[in-house]
Design a binder for these strands. Structure first.
Lengths: 214, 214, 214, 214
DNA sequence: ACCGACGGGACCGCCCGTTGTT
DNA sequence: AACAACGGGCGGTCCCGTCGGT
C-alpha cells in the first residue's frame, strides 16, 4: 500500500509519522492519543507534524489506513497460501485468530476500535472504518465467488452471509480474547468456523471440475 | 436493581446521576464523556456530582454497571420466555439481535465499548467489563447445563465453546450493524446461530433423566 | 487557658474541634489545611463544624490560639522551675530548645508559621500572631524586671533588647533545626544564649539584697 | 546569574517569568500564589507558561532560586565591602538587617518562607531551601576561615556555631520585624551580634601568619 | 447540634492548533 | 521543512460555605 522506499524526503517523513502514530492511535484511541504523544514518538515537534497533516483527525485517518493496510496484507498473504476456496477461508480465519496471541500491531483490530470509538463522534474516521470492513467482506466474497466458479462451492451459498458471520465472529472473539487476555475464546470460535467452512456444500451436480475454471 | 422509589434523597440523586450518565458514557466513551456533559445532563454542578462519586472513574464504573444491568435484565427476561434450553438460547440470541435496531441504551453494547476503550488505559473499568462478560458466558452455560440435566441436550456439548461462540458472534455482529447502520449483518449472524442451536445434538439414547424430552 | 473539663456539651465539641484542628493548621498552614481535612480529623461533617465556627478563618484563629496556649504553658512551667531570673531565662531558652527534638505540637512554632504565612494575606491571624509574640516578649521582660527588683540583675539591662534577642535567635534556630532536621543548630544557639544570660551584669553597687524585694 | 541581554527568545521569556513570579511566590507562598496570578503578572497565558515549566513546582523552584540569588549577591557584595574578617561579618549582618526596612524583594527572606511553608508538603522546594541556607552557613564559615588564616581570629572559634547563631538570630529578627512592621527588633539583634563579633578573640599570641592584624 | 446535598468557583495541568523564525 | 513560543480553552478535582432536614 505504501512504497516507502523511494519518494521525496517530505513523503518519507510523512510515512514515518504515520507508522509511528498508528500504534498510538490503535492503543489509546483517537481521543486518548494526544498530539504530544505523537511528538514524543516521532521526535518531531508540533510544527513538524502540522506541516504534513492539517489536523489531528487527518493524521488519525492516515494512521488508521496504515494500520488497516498492515492487517489487510496479512490476510491477503494468508489467502494466497491456500489453493482452494475452503482452504483460503480457513487460512483467513486462522490468520485472524493468530492476532489474539501475536497482534500485528498493538491495540487490537483497528477497524473494530475505530468503529466503537468513532461511533457517534467522528464521521470521517467512521467512513474509513466502513471502507476497511467492506474490503474484508469483499475479500471473503471474492473467495466464495472464485470457489463457486472453480466448482468447489455450491453457488447457492450466501457469500454475504458468510462474510458477515466470519467477520463478526472473529472480531467478537478477538475482542474477548483481549478482554480476558486469553486466546481460548478465539480458539473456540475458530474451531467452529473452520468446521463450518469445511462443511460448506459442494455443487449439487456435475460440478466435478475441481480446477477447470480460470 | 433500581428501586428508585424509596431510599434517601442522596441515594435517589445518585441513582438519577447514574441513569443519566450511563448513556453518555456508552455513547461517548470514558474519555469522550466529560464531567461537564454530565452536569448538563443531570442539572447538577460539579460540586454536586463529586458528593456522590469520588472521581470520574467511580461514576463511570457505576454507570457501566447500570448499563450492563439493563441489558442483563433483558436477556434474563428473554430466557424466561422460552421453556426449553434450545428455545432459551435462541431467545437470547434474538433478544440480543433486536438491539441492532432498537438498542436498550444508546451507544451499543456497554461491555464491548468498555472492553475496547479501556483496553490499555483503565483497569477498573476493564475489570467490570470482564465481570459482565463472564456473567454472559455463565448465562449461556447455565442454560446448556439445565438443558443437559433436562435431557434435552447432549452432555458432550461444550458449553464454554458455545458461550464463546454466541457472545463473540453477537457482539461482532452488533458492532457491524452499528458500523453500517444496517441490521442485516446481525440478521445473517443470528440466522446462523439459530440454525446451529437447533442442530445441537440431543442425548445419544436412553434418557434416564427425569424429563425425557422429545 | 481552656477548662475543657466541665462546660456544656456544645462547648466541649467546640474544644475538641479546636484541639484536632490545631495540629493540622500548624503543619499544613492556613491554606494548606482544608475544611475537609478537619472533617476527617474530627469525625464531624461540614455542617457540624460551621455550627461552631462561622468561617475557616475563625476556626483557624481558635486553633492558633490553642496551639499558642500549649507552648505558652510549657514556657510558664519552665519559668517556675527556676528560682532566680537568670535561671528562669535559661530555663525558658532550654525549654524552647527542646522543641527542636520533641515538638509539643507537630509543625513547629505556630507563631512563626503564622507570621510567615499570614504575612500579606490574613490580617486576623496576623494580629493574633502579634499578640502571641508580644506575650513572649513580655514573659522575658517580666523575668528581667523581677530580677532587677530582686537585685539579681543590673537595672540598666535593656529587657526589650533581651526579649528581641532571645525570641529571634530561638525562633530562627528552631526554623533551621526543622529545615535540616538536625537539632545541632538549636544547640549551638542555645549555648550562646545561655552563656550570654549567665554573663548578664549584676547591679553595680550596694544591691546585695538578693531577695529583699517583694 | 542573570545575563538577560543575549540568549534566545525562549530563554528571555523564561527569565522574565521567573523574575515576575519570584515576588509572587515570596509574598503569597507556594500554595497562595496561583498560576493565574502568574499569568496576570507576566501577561502570558497558561499554555505559554507551561512551555517553559513543566509544573507549578518547577516554576516555584526556579523562582525560589532566583530570589535567593538576589539576596546572595547582596551579601556577597557586602562581604567585599570590608577588608577584614570581623568587618565582613558585621557587614553581612548589617546588610541583612537593612532588609527589615528595605527588602530586596517583597515578602521577606525566601529561605525562611520556603522552610516554613514547605516543611511537610514540598520536598523539592525544601531541598533547595536547605541548599540556600547551607550556602549562607558556608559564607560565614569561609569568612571565619579566612580571618583565621589572616591571623585576625582565634583558630579556636567555632565557625559552625557562629554561622548558626548569625543566621538564626538574623532570620528570627527579620521575621519579627516583619510581623510587627517595626525594624527595632532587627536593630536590637544586630547590635548584639555586632558586639559579639567585635569581641571575637584574636589569636592568643605570636601571630606567625603573614598578616599580623591589629 | 449535626448531617449531607449542593452551588459556584478556583485550582493545576493539558489539550489542539497557529504563528513567526530559522 | 522543522522548531519552539504561545493562545485560548477545557479537562478533572477540590475548594469554602450554605441550607434544608433530622
Amino acid at each position: 500500500v505504501s512504497p516507502a522506499t523511494l519518494a521525496s524526503k517530505g513523503a518519507r517523513t510523512r510515512q514515518r509519522i504515520v507508522e509511528q502514530a498508528a500504534p498510538l492511535f490503535n492503543q489509546l484511541g483517537y481521543k486518548g492519543a494526544s498530539m504530544r504523544d505523537i511528538t514524543e514518538a516521532t521526535g518531531l515537534e508540533k510544527g513538524g507534524l502540522y506541516n504534513h497533516f492539517g489536523s489531528k483527525e487527518a493524521l488519525a485517518v492516515a494512521a488508521f489506513d496504515h494500520s488497516v493496510s498492515i492487517t489487510a496484507h496479512r490476510l491477503a498473504a494468508a489467502r494466497e497460501s491456500a489453493p482452494d476456496a475452503r482452504g483460503q477461508l480457513i487460512a483467513l480465519a486462522r490468520e485472524f485468530s493468530h492476532w489474539a496471541k501475536r497482534p500485528p500491531l498493538p491495540g487490537g483490530c483497528p477497524i473494530m476500535n475505530t468503529a466503537i470509538e468513532a461511533d457517534d463522534t467522528n464521521p470521517e474516521l467512521l467512513e474509513h472504518a466502513r471502507g476497511a470492513m467492506n474490503d474484508l467482506h469483499r475479500l471473503v466474497g471474492s473467495i466464495v465467488k472464485a470457489g463457486v466458479a472453480a466448482g468447489e462451492l455450491d453457488p447457492e451459498i450466501d457469500r454475504y452471509a458468510l462474510a458477515s458471520l466470519l467477520t463478526s465472529a472473529l472480531e467478537g472473539a478477538l475482542m474477548q480474547s483481549r478482554l480476558f487476555d486469553d486466546a481460548v475464546h478465539m480458539d473456540r470460535v475458530v474451531d467452529h468456523l473452520v468446521a463450518y467452512i469445511e462443511a460448506l456444500p459442494a455443487p449439487k451436480r456435475r460440478g466435478r471440475t475441481r480446477r477447470s475454471a480460470q
